[in-house]
Design a protein around this nucleic acid. Structure first.
Lengths: 174, 174
DNA sequence: CCTTAACTTCACAAATTTGTGAAAGAAGCG
DNA sequence: CGCTTCTTTCACAAATTTGTGAAGTTAAGG
């Protein structure tokens, strides 16, 4: 589809900026539809599509055509939800941002904090509406579901780590 | 219609509108934080906290102090993401909206459509960046993760149905 | 058929969110 | 220590999203 190759056979070569950008924008658009704010989505996609899995602020601004301020904001958001981590580059005052392979989809999947607050709100609801009322029972069941999911997801992620090991070697990036 | 006795000892009674409202607003707030638009979140919470699990458009407007238009918009949204279903009330042209017990958190959890599109975008990415490149490998792994989650979640939901049966009787609402 | 109850659509005002340029803050390096 | 390079913060303009009143649509019930 996009005209790939002719020559180029070492793995690290043949990076067509066109193609990369197309993927970045397309994938970012999907994230946006799922509720991720626009800039964070684009920054994240760009990192995902980079060979090293890390980019500096300058590189991000350049590739996405956005201001340093926008990069800063996006990265702050992504760090907060644990989808990227930031690392100071030893020499220069440059900062690098990294998609941390595993860690990020764990964040996506579990949503720890959010679920916990839902559970809390539901407990309050059961209390104040009364566990014996129909509505109270519905809330209690919903609560039970979330608690169930909590433990199941944790187990699932363990299985994934095994599966991942099986499919790909130990580590890949990082 | 509001004003339902005092005395009260049958399970269906003793609904303190104050307390209900507090729960509705609190839970809705949590949903909003998780990315659900405000009105849909409030409407949904109201349904969840109702004894029958169904409310008419008029009842919703009244309890939440919002216009019919707002109700309409919110319900359209919720129906689209399968968090409520609408049913025509046989006699009158009134419409009822219902939280369908199970169905809704299944929707919340699986997100079928969204995940599928992510997977699609990722496949394209692997193709156009090249499966042999570091970035391509990262995308491939991410893709594998989502595919893994797909099947795992399906199984998890089956287990939940069993568990639910065990905890609560066969059906509760509906 | 006409009336009327119930929901939906539409245009728009208000509120919120986004991204930017400019200025201010850190931190390496001479 | 001061210069320089990078990043963050801030105020604001632009774009988007929200919720409303009002007009439009549909169908029940005379």
């Amino acid at each position: 589809m996009t005209e790939r190759t002719d020559r180029a056979d070492r793995s690290t070569v043949e990076r067509d900026p066109e193609a990369v950008s197309r993927f970045v924008e397309h994938f970012a658009a999907q994230l946006v539809e799922a509720g991720v704010p626009r800039m964070p989505a684009r920054v994240f996609a760009a990192l995902l599509a980079s060979d090293s899995g890390t980019l500096t602020s300058a590189e991000l601004g350049e590739r996405l055509r956005i201001s340093p301020a926008a990069v800063s904001g996006a990265v702050r958001y992504l760090a907060q939800v644990h989808m990227v981590s930031r690392e100071r580059e030893p020499g220069s005052r440059r900062e690098r941002y990294r998609v941390h392979g595993d860690q990020w989809y764990e964040a996506l999947t579990s949503r720890e904090a959010i679920i916990k607050r839902w559970e809390h709100a539901l407990r309050e609801g059961v209390d104040s509406l009364g566990a014996a009322t129909p509505a109270g029972r519905r809330l209690a069941e919903t609560l039970a579901f979330f608690e169930f999911v909590d433990t199941e997801v944790a187990q699932m992620m363990n299985r994934w780590r095994t599966e991942r090991e099986r499919l790909f070697g130990s580590q890949d990036d990082h």
